[in-house]
Design a protein around this nucleic acid. Structure first.
Lengths: 150, 150
DNA sequence: TTACAATAATTGTACTTACAAATGTATGGT
DNA sequence: ACCATACATTTGTAAGTACAATTATTGTAA
């Protein structure tokens, strides 16, 4: 169904406006799908996202600005997001020895094992969310999205 | 720049996962762009979205469930969102005469004139946000997004 | 008609997010 | 050493959102 029918829009939209709306609407649906999947694990999409970044550090600590740069949805409030992870013993925070303004955040074994528990199923969930697109179409879509941000 | 570089992802992503991330990330950027544009008008994207829906009714009143169906980002809390519009005299709310459980929301002249003030510039802003895509690419993108939701 | 379920909206509460101001630390110039 | 400035994070506050529970109204079936 095209986006105008989906949101029952009555007026005629220009192509860029239609696309902006379509992108926001479709992304919202995917986000909901991911959030719903993560819920039983007690994680929000942002918390999951940060855990993934921490794991990607392969042992090296990350500070807050690094996390922020790499997050899908930049947050003004990464401090409190990390607090939540620490409270659940999924991450750990230290003050950086060489620059005490900075903070060093690492994923805990607990966090790693939660992620590895999720990994496989998350893959399947993502594939399911995009099951209507063929491999070639996924690539096309990625290219178009990359181009938007150029 | 591709999405993996953009968020400095170190691990290899499957194509569906890459696409889910890319979509959420790119949509986020557009949303920020729209939000920033609307800020001087004192509207959030959701408030603007609801105002557009109300205008689309062409005088006919909308009730809350109608608004929710048509909103880009479904909200659990449309009541309070409409409250904000009413407080700014951009919308008006009445109890439906034939079914007093329902509510009838209409856009005010004030709301209409605010929208018409925004219209032209919003078009330009959307075009700017997607300036990297040619007309044909916009269509391609729309088709792919429609297909995801099928 | 009365009781029960369904519908439509609102409210309470906890949680998140946005934004600005504040804190603490480091750096560069004099 | 001293000062101003920049940096990195944290905190306060207001606004926004999610979810469940509640209120009010309507429909319906015994």
């Amino acid at each position: 169904m095209n986006i105008e029918k989906e949101i029952q829009n009555s007026s005629i939209l220009s192509e860029p406006t239609r696309t902006v709306i379509n992108l926001m609407y479709t992304a919202r649906q995917l986000e909901d799908g991911v959030a719903m999947f993560l819920k039983p694990y007690g994680l929000t999409t942002q918390q999951y996202n940060v855990l993934r970044i921490l794991r990607g550090q392969k042992g090296a600590p990350a500070n807050l600005s690094t996390l922020n740069e790499r997050m899908i949805a930049k947050s003004s409030n990464t401090t409190r997001l990390v607090d939540k992870l620490i409270k659940k013993d999924l991450a750990h925070r230290d003050v950086c020895e060489t620059n005490r303004r900075k903070v060093e955040i690492v994923i805990t074994p607990n966090g790693l094992s939660l992620l590895s528990e999720i990994d496989e199923e998350m893959e399947q969930n993502n594939a399911k969310l995009l099951k209507n697109l063929a491999a070639e179409e996924l690539q096309q879509l990625n290219n178009l999205l990359d181009k938007i941000r150029e």
